[in-house]
């Protein structure tokens, strides 16, 4: 019997996800927003891996899913930072509140 059960991992996962979501909504620096999105995705990863580990048949799909999410998240940040660099070169700011030409 494990001391840690599935629900502990799910709590951790929900916590990570919630912290990330609050970060996205509350922060103004776009780099920090990107980091917060990473937190949300990692919350998802924890849930997936935990579900996989505790499933009756030890289903591997959750682990694979998590690896793909990590890869996709890396690509996402690469594109996000590339666009942010272009914006920074023109406006000298990474503040989300100041990037508001378009409503």
């Amino acid at each position: 019997m494990d001391a840690l059960a599935l629900q502990h991992y799910l709590l951790l996962s929900a916590g990570l996800f919630a912290v990330g979501l609050v970060g996205v909504l509350a922060k103004r620096n776009v780099v920090v927003i990107l980091m917060s999105i990473e937190l949300m995705l990692n919350g998802v990863n924890v849930a997936l891996v935990a579900f996989s580990r505790y499933s009756p048949v030890d289903e591997l799909a959750g682990h694979i899913f998590a690896i793909f999410i990590i890869t996709v998240a890396a690509a996402e940040v690469a594109i996000g930072l590339a666009i942010l660099l272009t914006i920074f070169a023109r406006r000298n700011t990474v503040d989300a509140a100041e990037i508001n030409l378009l409503k």
Partner: peptide, 13 residues
């Protein structure tokens, strides 16, 4: 670029 950034961030969330 601004609209692309908005699209990317909202899409990621």
């Amino acid at each position: 670029t601004e609209s692309a950034l908005k699209f990317l961030l909202l899409s990621a969330v």
